[in-house]
Lab assay of single mutants.
Amino acid sequence: STVKVRLGHLEVTLHNVSEEDVRELRELWKNGADEEDLRRWLEEWKK
């Protein structure tokens, strides 16, 4: 499914993403990950 995730002022649209992935991303964000960390996660996730 396609999910729009809003993290601060960063809005990311993920395609074919699982609930688990979204949860993981939100956890990262809650734990103080900055945009760099999130971008890195997204790069990994896209592979």
Results as ranks from 00 to 15, higher is better:
residue 1 S to V: 14
residue 1 S to H: 15
residue 1 S to K: 12
residue 1 S to F: 15
residue 1 S to M: 15
residue 2 T to A: 05
residue 2 T to H: 07
residue 3 V to S: 02
residue 4 K to H: 11
residue 4 K to F: 03
residue 5 V to T: 01
residue 5 V to A: 01
residue 5 V to Y: 01
residue 5 V to E: 01
residue 5 V to Q: 01
residue 5 V to I: 15
residue 6 R to Y: 11
residue 6 R to L: 13
residue 6 R to D: 02
residue 6 R to M: 14
residue 6 R to F: 12
residue 7 L to N: 02
residue 7 L to E: 01
residue 7 L to P: 00
residue 7 L to K: 03
residue 7 L to I: 15
residue 8 G to R: 06
residue 8 G to A: 05
residue 8 G to E: 03
residue 8 G to F: 02
residue 9 H to A: 14
residue 10 L to C: 12
residue 11 E to M: 13
residue 11 E to A: 06
residue 11 E to F: 09
residue 12 V to G: 00
residue 12 V to E: 03
residue 12 V to K: 02
residue 13 T to G: 01
residue 14 L to G: 00
residue 14 L to N: 00
residue 15 H to D: 06
residue 15 H to P: 03
residue 15 H to Y: 15
residue 15 H to K: 06
residue 16 N to Y: 07
residue 16 N to E: 04
residue 16 N to C: 05
residue 17 V to T: 02
residue 17 V to M: 10
residue 17 V to F: 05
residue 17 V to C: 03
residue 17 V to L: 10
residue 18 S to P: 06
residue 18 S to L: 06
residue 19 E to H: 08
residue 20 E to C: 06
residue 20 E to N: 12
residue 20 E to P: 06
residue 21 D to T: 08
residue 21 D to S: 12
residue 21 D to V: 09
residue 21 D to C: 08
residue 22 V to K: 06
residue 22 V to R: 06
residue 22 V to S: 04
residue 23 R to H: 10
residue 23 R to V: 08
residue 24 E to Q: 15
residue 24 E to F: 14
residue 24 E to N: 12
residue 24 E to M: 13
residue 24 E to K: 15
residue 24 E to A: 15
residue 25 L to K: 00
residue 25 L to P: 00
residue 26 R to G: 06
residue 26 R to V: 11
residue 26 R to S: 10
residue 27 E to T: 07
residue 27 E to A: 09
residue 28 L to Y: 05
residue 29 W to R: 04
residue 29 W to E: 07
residue 29 W to A: 06
residue 30 K to Q: 10
residue 30 K to L: 10
residue 30 K to F: 07
residue 30 K to C: 05
residue 30 K to N: 12
residue 31 N to W: 05
residue 31 N to G: 10
residue 31 N to P: 03
residue 31 N to T: 10
residue 31 N to M: 08
residue 32 G to P: 02
residue 32 G to W: 03
residue 32 G to C: 05
residue 33 A to P: 07
residue 33 A to M: 08
residue 33 A to I: 07
residue 33 A to N: 04
residue 34 D to G: 14
residue 34 D to S: 15
residue 34 D to I: 07
residue 35 E to T: 08
residue 35 E to R: 04
residue 36 E to H: 14
residue 36 E to G: 12
residue 36 E to T: 11
residue 37 D to W: 06
residue 37 D to P: 03
residue 37 D to M: 15
residue 37 D to A: 15
residue 37 D to L: 14
residue 38 L to E: 00
residue 38 L to N: 00
residue 39 R to H: 06
residue 39 R to V: 10
residue 39 R to Q: 08
residue 40 R to Q: 11
residue 40 R to M: 09
residue 40 R to T: 08
residue 41 W to H: 01
residue 41 W to E: 00
residue 41 W to N: 00
residue 42 L to I: 15
residue 42 L to S: 01
residue 42 L to F: 14
residue 42 L to M: 09
residue 42 L to W: 12
residue 42 L to E: 01
residue 43 E to H: 12
residue 44 E to I: 11
residue 44 E to A: 15
residue 44 E to C: 13
residue 44 E to S: 14
residue 45 W to K: 09
residue 45 W to A: 04
residue 45 W to N: 04
residue 46 K to H: 13
residue 46 K to W: 15
residue 46 K to L: 15
residue 46 K to Y: 15
residue 47 K to H: 08
residue 47 K to Y: 07
residue 47 K to M: 09
residue 47 K to A: 12
